[in-house]
Design a protein around this nucleic acid. Structure first.
Length: 269
DNA sequence: AGAAACGCCTGCGCGC
DNA sequence: TGCGCGCAGGCGTTTC
């Protein structure tokens, strides 16, 4: 399930194959993803990919005529393959390039998206997003200030895209464990000091996951088809009932905001 | 206005 | 071995 590290790994994987390449064809095999795929995405045909950017968990393929926005949803992944390779089940969108390669978006659950952004404009999706976690804009001070008077559990708070983008369920669980903070603790009651501990942990956890090629649980694969290796480093996610790596207490699982939340009742207060 | 619930999807693991 | 069911969950939208 792609979170920010997986999206970034995808970006790094596809960029050398498609940047500065001419788009020769856009093929839409299944136009109903999360939203219908707009016809405008075809207007990149004949254009050069100037850059491949990421904002939150969205990827943007920029051309002078506009940008194709891709989102991997829950189960999506991108692959670079020869154009001659047979389509796989759930290959919904395909972009051909002058170098003979194809970028294919495969998404079984179709929670992903393929949208269009006019040149020099910003899609409405990006309007209210919080800062990128791996930049200096994401600070403990920001978390502290934004959380005052908030009763929402801290786990849901740090997963809120309006607060900071890209912290999904896996990395929220991991970061709170490492910081020793109980996931249900009211965000508004967490001290600045604890946010000062948590913030670098979130950054480090995300950065480490990117270096490891992301977390492969079921669906995710890197653009060359290889899995990511961060799953081996998960301390709590998916380990309900197993011993805590710090204190041997058995890890508990609860649901917060309809999402699986695993923690150590001994280490996280 | 903020918080919680909803719904879109398919694949997989489980129990029988 | 087959079948039905519950679960996985990002995130925009809807409801309270």
């Amino acid at each position: 399930m792609p979170e920010l590290p997986e999206v970034e790994v995808s970006r790094l994987g596809i960029t050398p194959h498609i940047e500065q390449q001419v788009v020769t064809k856009v093929l839409i095999h299944h136009a109903s993803l999360r939203w219908p795929i707009p016809d405008e995405v075809r207007s990149i045909e004949g254009m050069v990919i100037r850059s491949v950017r990421r904002r939150a968990k969205y990827l943007l393929l920029d051309t002078d005529k506009g940008s194709v926005i891709l989102h991997l949803g829950m189960s999506g992944h991108l692959r670079i393959v020869p154009q001659s390779e047979l389509l796989k089940k759930h290959d919904h969108v395909e972009i051909h390039f002058g170098n003979g390669k194809a970028l294919r978006l495969n998404d079984a659950r179709r929670f992903g998206a393929c949208l269009w952004q006019e040149p020099k404009q910003s899609h409405a999706l990006f309007n209210k997003l919080g800062p990128e976690p791996l930049t200096d804009e994401f600070t403990a001070q920001l978390l502290f200030e934004r959380s005052r008077n908030k009763k929402v559990p801290i786990k849901q708070f740090i997963m809120d895209n309006h607060v900071v983008v890209g912290v999904g369920n896996i990395y929220a669980n991991e970061s709170l464990f490492k910081a020793g903070i109980h996931p249900k603790r009211e965000a508004g009651k967490v001290s600045l000091k604890r946010y000062q501990a948590l913030t670098p942990i979130i950054k480090d956890t995300l950065a480490a996951a990117i270096e490891q090629g992301g977390t492969t649980l079921k669906d995710f694969a890197q653009s060359d088809g290889k899995p990511g290796y961060f799953a081996q480093q998960l301390l709590v996610y998916g380990r309900k009932g197993e011993p805590c790596v710090k204190c041997d207490e058995l890890l508990k699982e609860i649901r917060l905001g309809q999402r699986s939340t695993v923690y150590c009742a001994q280490c996280q207060k």
